[in-house]
């Protein structure tokens, strides 16, 4: 009886997992970070290819954790969106595999070079200085043109930025400054900006709305949401600092050994098409799209129109570099009374 019981357990486990695997081949399973965008792609993708796209909305790092955990028996085919770092890590660990998409001919060469084949670029989003001119005028501050300008005491109490301990946006700002000025000078600059800070927000774009409402004069944030809100009528201006600015490149990756690799490739090709990228803009993702034929967001620039720095994604994406810089900021800048 005993061996048979054990056998029975094994059989039932097998039977159940076999039934799970027996799901249809005409489905692509996507781990999706940008929910509205994926939702917008689902119907058109089905109409064009006859393949159903199912997605699970997870946050960037959760997605990585999920794909990593399932590496031996993946249930997902594609990892879509989110910041670039986890795509780099996934490619390094081999849980995603490189894919030479035919659509690469249509993608921005700068973005392709920056990610260096680790994944396929989906969009780029630069850091920008967003200002409310009326507030600056009232406070007697000039229009800032560079990162240096933000240390001018005229901006005292006017600037809002995210807290790097709670948001990746602020880390991108710190990494950008370190790459432009070198670490020592960058931290002097950050110390100067600290004196002008009105608030460190909890979320990345938390200072945008207060700036539009005239509560703050300057917000340091990713550009896409500022573009969208400017179009919605906020009286803001978007400034790219003269020293250049950093950016993030979001990506799309093919999961290694996924259940439906053919469908996954079809989906990736589709997602990188100008048509699919335009759907993203319509769904409210106003970043600079990787496909050069995609229409730019209303009022939005192309990547080659703005002074972006040669951002070293590989180095500054490493967790220990990241923790080190944030720790230094927390030690040396955050506690200084202002």
């Amino acid at each position: 009886m005993q061996p048979r019981l054990r056998h029975a357990i094994a059989v039932s486990a097998l039977a159940i997992s076999a039934a799970t695997a027996a799901q249809a081949q005409d489905v692509v399973n996507v781990v999706c970070v940008v929910e509205e965008w994926c939702e917008a792609l689902r119907e058109p993708f089905f109409e064009e290819t006859g393949i159903r796209m199912e997605f699970l909305n997870l946050r960037t790092n959760e997605s990585l954790v999920r794909i990593r955990a399932e590496a031996s028996n993946p249930t997902f085919d594609v990892f879509y969106g989110g910041t670039g770092d986890p795509h780099f890590v996934a490619a390094g660990e081999g849980v995603t595999e490189p894919y030479e998409s035919p659509m690469m001919a249509e993608l921005s060469e700068d973005m392709l070079n920056a990610v260096n084949g680790a994944y396929l670029p989906l969009y780029a989003n630069p850091i920008a200085i967003v200002v409310n001119p009326a507030v600056l005028e009232e406070a007697g501050a000039p229009m800032p043109e560079s990162w240096e300008d933000l240390t001018d005491p005229a901006f005292r109490g006017l600037i809002g930025m995210a807290d790097p301990n709670s948001s990746g946006t602020a880390y991108t700002v710190i990494a950008t400054l370190v790459q432009i000025f070198g670490e020592e000078e960058a931290f002097e600059l950050l110390a100067g900006m600290h004196q002008n800070m009105a608030t460190y927000t909890r979320s990345g774009s938390g200072s945008l709305q207060p700036t539009g409402q005239g509560e703050l004069g300057v917000a340091i944030i990713f550009m896409s949401s500022a573009l969208r809100e400017r179009e919605a009528g906020l009286p803001i201006e978007i400034i790219i600092p003269s020293e250049g600015t950093g950016y993030e490149i979001s990506g799309i990756s093919l999961v290694a050994n996924g259940p439906n690799p053919e469908g996954a490739r079809t989906f990736i090709d589709y997602a990188l098409s100008a048509e699919a990228q335009d759907l993203g803009t319509q769904a409210g993702s106003w970043q600079i799209k990787a496909n050069v034929n995609a229409a730019p967001a209303p009022g939005g620039p192309r990547l080659d129109e703005i002074a972006v720095i040669d951002y070293d994604f590989e180095h500054f994406g490493q967790p220990d570099v990241q923790t080190g810089l944030i720790a230094r900021w927390t030690e040396e800048i955050f506690p200084v009374p202002r």
């Binding site: 357990i9 039932s12 039977a15 039934a19 799901q23």
Partner: peptide, 26 residues
């Protein structure tokens, strides 16, 4: 008896205990 994905509906009789064969789940 079980589901394959998250959704509870529609009912999928591929996952009926009978189609899962013999085992402890009986």
């Amino acid at each position: 008896l079980i589901r394959t994905g998250r959704r509870f509906l529609p009912l999928d009789y591929m996952l009926h205990p009978l189609s899962l064969g013999a085992g402890l789940h009986w």
